[in-house]
Design a protein around this nucleic acid. Structure first.
Lengths: 241, 241
DNA sequence: TACAAAGTGTGCAATTTTGAACAGATTTGC
DNA sequence: GCAAATCTGTTCAAAATTGCACACTTTGTA
């Protein structure tokens, strides 16, 4: 399983569900360079380097740092009492995570696991608060980020409220594939396990397997042990009944 | 139907699902007074007054203003292609809405309907951006708000990913009731129609009716045509299996 | 007061989803 | 290269959920 390699590095980030393309571009394409800013202020002094499948922090850990992804990718998951796992977000370069501690959250509500070799800037909570207060450009940029992030999560919620698991799977595949070679109608994405897809859309692996086979039989997607190929125009039909 | 009157005025806001109590207190209990600030800067010059069930803006409208609820309550809903409706959030005094336009959203993605006579401050998008950039205290406060809001929506999403509709209903009732008289184990809340509850938790009225009756038979809740009474300790058992 | 509109209690068949099992295929790490 | 771990394809019965229908009650209003 080799998830989300540089495909996402190029496009800067990915949510497990519904990022508004306009939003995303908007939040990221400003002249202000976050990485450069963090370096210049010394905020990004501390760098964390992780292998694939490493745990950056775990649900329940004390929450004292905000992370800024420089390279790689991170999956945020939560587990419930029964041990079932759900994927809350999949983040890439340019995304923050752990930012909830800024609002007084003392404990991490999710586990952050890398899905590729990853480099993050580790920003101490109080420093982040101080700089957000002092530096206009940075707080502007952070507000834009939070607005975009909020819209993504709301869209994920709406997706859950409205759609059947078949549609949610189709939507998730399309969103993941969007970040492949643009202009290519035959998008492909690195293999994501059916288990992970199930955790993303909140259903069982049985169900994912069932629909993956259905989509394949209908010719909407193709896959082998290392890639999933998606025919955008065909699969998107599923979303519109 | 007389929804969410001053119960919420006292506690300042409510989400349809999972506000973290700590977060909420944190985001709101700072010395900084948003209303006063908006008044002093002239940002809150424009005031909107609405009856109950009035539409502040509709899905698809151009998005040009950020609203700050001074009094009353607002429900954000979206409809899908088939006309089905979902409640994204229920907001009260101290909450912002329409803030997505700050991130470049040109069109309202939801409909904002009042659920009580409501007064909002109407802030022009560009003024809001300018002041967020210039005024530290205000941007700090807005960031705290966005962080809290984000956590609420994420928790709603997690609730959807994990829980059955029975648990989601129990959770929603408990959250709505939390804002009643504190310390009273017999919380009560103004009648919310089963239809609305169904839209909040993403299920059908049949299902809500089924569980409401079940909870009532078990003595977890009581209700008549104008009030719902909730026995907190009994109903919360549902959440833990 | 009386009618229309909104909300509730029921029932039920059809559909969707879960959850668990098990064998075979593939990948990973020595 | 091999064993262990992970992932896939396939079952299937049980459980949850939908979608609809219809009668009844309450509320708002002319």
């Amino acid at each position: 399983m080799l998830l989300f390699p540089m495909v996402y590095a190029a496009t800067r980030s990915v949510s497990n569900k519904a990022p508004l393309p306009s939003k995303r571009a908007n939040a990221r394409s400003r002249a202000f360079d976050v990485k450069q800013f963090l370096d210049s202020t010394g905020l990004g002094r501390k760098v964390g380097t992780y292998d694939r499948k490493a745990t950056v922090f775990a649900q329940g850990d004390p929450a004292k740092h905000v992370m800024y992804i420089q390279d790689g990718g991170v999956k945020l998951t939560v587990v419930n009492e029964t041990g079932r796992e759900a994927v809350v977000a999949i983040l890439g370069p340019g995304d923050f995570f752990g930012e909830a501690c800024l609002g007084g959250q003392h404990i991490c509500m999710a586990t952050a696991t890398t899905i590729a070799p990853t480099v993050v800037l580790v920003i101490e909570k109080n420093e982040m608060i101080r700089v957000l207060h002092e530096e206009h450009e940075f707080s502007d940029r952070f507000i834009a980020y939070m607005l975009a992030r909020n819209i993504r999560v709301e869209e994920d919620l709406i997706d859950q409220l409205f759609n059947s698991s078949e549609k949610r799977l189709a939507r998730t595949l399309l969103l993941l594939a969007r970040y492949g070679a643009p202009g290519d109608p035959q998008k492909s994405l690195p293999k994501v396990s059916q288990e992970t897809l199930a955790e993303m859309i909140g259903t069982t692996r049985s169900r994912v397997n069932f629909f993956m086979n259905k989509f394949r039989k209908l010719g909407f997607i193709h896959y082998n042990s290392r890639k999933i190929h998606i025919d955008n125009s065909l699969l998107s039909v599923v979303l519109h009944d």
